[in-house]
């Protein structure tokens, strides 16, 4: 069986290089990297293709155009994608999840050969977790979110998802869109041999016009994107050690942290 896979790859600012100033990240001259979850998606693609015994893996990315994307995407090619498709257009600047999904869906439709469409569950920077589901909806494909295990089964795909107190197993026919969580696999390390081959793999570049799209303007604006601050409870347990331990365990049970 031949399985054609498209992996949607977002390139993010290298988190290790970012300094925080006045609670805002300083993005000046920060290199972009393929996101960690996208690497899980790529690894899942490689494993599925191996299981199928053949097929083409394409890395697909959309970008507003000034991120040295042809260089950054080499990381996905070095990991094992056979080809890259870049949708680069200045009109993508400021696009929100709906706009990005529109561009991705149009690109997947134009690529044509796609049995499985893979995403990370969210991106390293914004982590909205919306894009995979939006693209599936636009394409009218079944969608499986947050897969922690993927396998080919009965001509389609079978996926496991971790729910609160159970594991859910879902099956879907092809073509299907799947978002993956980091537990799904350990992305393979990249060898120098594959890095050197990456530069020779085909890269296709499209604009929004090539996809028959006009501008994909943002319908929302991010005012602030900060983690919620949590107040600590500062509870002290007094008494003998045994009493302290009992009181501590009781408090944890009461909070619902343990012993549910």
């Amino acid at each position: 069986m031949s399985l054609d896979i498209v992996v949607c790859v977002k390139t993010n600012p290298d988190a290790q290089m970012i300094r925080i100033k006045n609670r805002e990240p300083v993005l000046e001259a920060i290199p972009y990297k393929v996101g960690d979850l996208e690497k899980n998606a790529l690894e899942a693609a490689l494993q599925l293709r191996d299981a199928a015994g053949g097929g083409t893996i394409r890395a697909l990315t959309v970008v507003e155009g000034d991120r040295k994307i042809r260089e950054t995407i080499k990381e996905a090619l070095a990991m094992g994608a056979d080809e890259a498709v870049i949708v680069a257009d200045p009109a993508l600047a400021g696009a929100d999840q709906a706009g990005i999904a529109a561009a991705l869906a149009a690109a997947v439709a134009k690529i044509g050969a796609c049995d499985v469409l893979l995403f990370g569950e969210g991106s390293t920077d914004n982590y909205s977790g919306q894009v995979g589901a939006r693209v599936a909806e636009l394409l009218g494909w079944p969608q499986i979110g947050y897969a922690k295990k993927l396998a080919l089964a009965g001509g389609g795909i079978e996926a496991e998802r971790s729910m609160d107190e159970m594991i859910e197993t879902l099956a879907a026919p092809l073509p299907v869109a799947v978002t993956v969580v980091s537990e799904i696999n350990e992305p393979r390390p990249i060898s120098l041999m594959n890095i050197l081959k990456a530069g020779k793999k085909p890269v296709t570049e499209w604009t929004l016009a090539d996809l028959g799209l006009d501008a994909v303007g943002a319908q929302k604006r991010i005012v602030s994107n900060l983690a919620e601050e949590q107040d600590r409870k500062h509870v002290l347990f007094a008494g003998a050690v045994d009493e302290q331990v009992d009181a501590f365990v009781n408090a944890l049970v009461k909070e619902g942290v343990v012993g549910r």
């Binding site: 080499k74 990381e75 990249i190 120098l192």
Partner: peptide, 15 residues
């Protein structure tokens, strides 16, 4: 170069 930098990152992570 991009290739040199990818190699550096890849082996740093592995090592």
């Amino acid at each position: 170069t991009t290739e040199q930098d990818l190699y550096r990152q890849a082996i740093r992570e592995w090592l």
